[in-house]
């Protein structure tokens, strides 16, 4: 079984913040920046998801490049 590169575990962070954070975010009964805090929390998590996936994507690309063999394995697959 291949080991999962450590940086890929970052992907679970936004998901955990949504699933695990909502019970806490829901206790804030105030408007923050004009929005209900729960809504703002979820919007923040959505933005974080995008940023996290971008980071993982670039780290994966870097790892693939330093692994050397071929610069872009996906293309090799597509060509088959």
């Amino acid at each position: 079984m291949r080991r999962v590169p450590l940086h890929r575990w970052l992907a679970v962070v936004p998901g955990l913040l949504i699933l695990g954070g909502v019970p806490f975010a829901n206790r804030v009964h105030r408007l923050v920046l004009g929005l209900p805090f729960l809504l703002l929390w979820i919007v923040g998590c959505v933005l974080l998801t995008s940023a996290t996936m971008a980071l993982i994507g670039s780290l994966d690309a870097k790892a693939a490049r330093s692994a050397g063999a071929s610069p872009d394995p996906p293309d090799r697959d597509a060509a088959r």
């Binding site: 890929r8 992907a11 679970v12 936004p14 998901g15 949504i18 699933l19 909502v22 729960l38 809504l39 979820i42 919007v43 998590c45 959505v46 998801t49 995008s50 996290t52 996936m53 993982i56 994507g57």
Partner: peptide, 17 residues
């Protein structure tokens, strides 16, 4: 209703893998 906004983000993170 906010759940509609929440699940898509997680689904896209899963989709990467």
């Amino acid at each position: 209703a906010f759940y509609i906004l929440g699940y898509g983000a997680i689904a896209y993170a899963i989709s990467y893998f």
